[in-house]
């Protein structure tokens, strides 16, 4: 069979108007695909690498869009556009970390079309995997990116387990740092995951990025009020200032009192197959002053045990410095 790319094959399209209807379609068909903004999906379809028979497009499911108060926090529908997340006054004023991260995603056009849920569950950008190579993540037996000669400057420096791909979702780190919960529905009911448990590394399941299985829908993201108004720090390092994924990014929520760090929640992304919450660092810096020494200690601890590949050693100091900046309290 000859290979052809960049030309979408046909599939059956469903456009349900409710979650129940969507779940029903997913339940009734095999080889399904859930389509949100389509920015990740279309690439796969066009390259004919992921070939669903049935595509369930969620654009008409109104219960999945919108941002509303929930307890002392917010609940954001998974289909809410990144633009709406960025523009939302509550998000900006109380959970600016998410607004900052969402505002850096790709380009304005992509933020108009792309959704929060889609950004979170996007597949990795490992170019071997996305090139249709039969790697572990694609059900094969080899990680082509992890060999001594591979081109892996954008790959993982930690958390590798056969697969060395990274999670590239800009909003993922921010939601981990905000202690968000992911609400998942399937025909079997609703499940709730802590943000950091929502993402799955290759040691657990090498073919998925999140806990979502066929038939599951991420419906909402709940952000508790715990970190509202904390000092936030978001930064992404990348090759271009737009339409680029993070070489490494940091998201931090830090509460200080009298010049010392009272509590903190920090995540880095772009360095491992999942966003990495830095609980050790959070413990370390508690009660310490927010300054460069603390930042450096935090950065060193965060990157201890990192195992760079042939071309990505630079990610070690990069991640260290991003954590350092987040902790020492740079203006983002």
């Amino acid at each position: 069979m000859a290979v052809i790319r960049d030309m979408m094959p046909a599939f059956e399209l469903f456009q349900p108007t409710s979650v129940d209807e969507a779940l029903d379609v997913l339940e009734r068909h095999d080889n399904t695909w859930v389509l949100a903004g389509g920015l990740d999906s279309m690439d796969w379809f066009k390259d004919r690498i992921k070939r669903p028979d049935v595509v369930v497009e969620l654009g008409s499911v109104s219960e999945l869009t919108g941002i509303r108060a929930s307890g002392d926090g917010l609940e954001i529908g998974a289909m809410t556009s990144l633009r709406d997340v960025v523009a939302n006054e509550d998000v900006r004023s109380r959970f600016g970390l998410l607004a900052d991260a969402a505002a850096q995603v790709a380009t304005p056009q992509i933020r108009n079309q792309g959704t929060l849920g889609g950004n979170l569950i996007q597949d990795t950008r490992c170019w071997y995997y996305r090139g249709g190579w039969p790697c572990y993540r694609a059900g094969g037996n080899i990680c082509y990116a992890g060999t001594p000669r591979s081109m892996n400057r954008e790959h993982a420096v930690t958390g590798q387990s056969r697969c060395v791909a990274v999670n590239g979702a800009d909003t993922a780190g921010a939601l981990v740092a905000l202690g968000a919960q992911m609400l998942v529905r399937s025909a079997g009911g609703e499940r709730v995951y802590e943000a950091e448990d929502f993402f799955v590394g290759p040691e657990i399941d090498i073919e998925r990025m999140t806990v979502l299985e066929p038939g599951d829908l991420l419906t909402h993201v709940h952000i508790p009020g715990d970190w509202a108004g904390a000092r936030f720090y978001w930064e992404t390092a990348r090759d271009r200032k737009s339409w680029d994924w993070a070489l490494a990014s940091v998201a931090a929520a830090i509460v200080e009192s009298n010049g010392t760090i009272e509590r903190a929640r920090i995540a880095i992304n772009g360095v491992a197959p999942t966003p990495v919450r830095l609980t050790d660092v959070e413990d370390l810096i508690q009660g310490m002053p927010a300054n460069d020494d603390t930042g450096m200690a935090a950065g060193e601890l965060a990157t201890r045990g990192f195992k760079p590949l042939r071309h990505n050693d630079y990610k070690v100091p990069l991640a260290r410095n991003l954590v350092r900046r987040a902790v020492r309290g740079d203006m983002a």
Binding site: R153, L247, H311, Y314, V316, L318
Partner: peptide, 13 residues
Amino acid sequence: TTDVILAELEGRA
């Protein structure tokens, strides 16, 4: 690129 510059700044390979 960033990696080249940072490696130089950090004195890494």
